[in-house]
């Protein structure tokens, strides 16, 4: 049944448009250049899911001693890893751009699906969880993400024998 949505416009939020307009209103004259590629790589599953080892990658970070400054993005943050066996009960998200007016991140399972994946391991849907999950900083610099962070995540995934990765940006 149709709802009250205004369908004279696309219904989903364009975060590219919204971000550009938001920073323009703050006096920033040069708009951010978002990543855009024509070609996309593709790796088929090499074995059945029930034999695959899975990991999770998040943009959240461990709880810092001092609150991070919102909007600074990367700051001193680096790629980090945590033990899936000792999954955290909460992570730090206050510095990230998510909808703080509409929701909250107090339930870690709403953005880090490790507990849910454990259930899928128990039921045999996936083979196992890797020993570590990972965190990647949200960075203004795509070059640092491409040249430093992504290769570091790959290195850690290979060390752990990862076959599949769920990447979960907030």
């Amino acid at each position: 049944m149709p709802d009250a949505t205004d369908t004279t416009h696309r219904t989903f939020v364009s975060y590219i448009d919204r971000t550009r307009e938001f920073y323009q209103a703050q006096g920033y004259s040069r708009a951010y250049q978002w990543a855009h590629f024509a070609d996309v790589p593709f790796a088929s599953l090499a074995k059945p899911l029930a034999q695959c080892r899975a990991t999770v990658v998040t943009t959240a970070s461990p709880i810092p001693e001092q609150p991070l400054v919102e909007g600074v993005l990367r700051g001193d943050k680096q790629v980090w890893s945590g033990a899936t066996e000792k999954r955290p009960e909460s992570l730090y998200t206050a510095d990230l751009a998510w909808d703080k007016g509409a929701t909250h991140t107090e339930d870690i399972h709403s953005f880090l699906p490790i507990a849910r994946l454990e259930e899928f391991v128990a039921s045999g849907r996936i083979g196992s969880l890797a020993a570590r999950f990972h965190g990647v900083p949200t960075d203004y610099s795509q070059r640092r993400t491409r040249e430093d962070d992504a290769p570091e995540i790959l290195r850690r995934c290979r060390e752990d024998g990862v076959d599949i990765a769920l990447l979960v940006p907030l």
Binding site: F12, Y15, A43, T145, R146, A165, V168
Partner: peptide, 26 residues
């Protein structure tokens, strides 16, 4: 995060991005 997905995938690890910022990812 999409850049990480592309890098893992190009190196043989199958990925899925689970998210809500449709335009940025696509």
């Amino acid at each position: 995060m999409s850049l990480v997905a592309r890098h893992l995938e190009a190196n043989g690890i199958a990925t899925v991005v689970v998210g809500s910022a449709r335009d940025i990812v696509e």
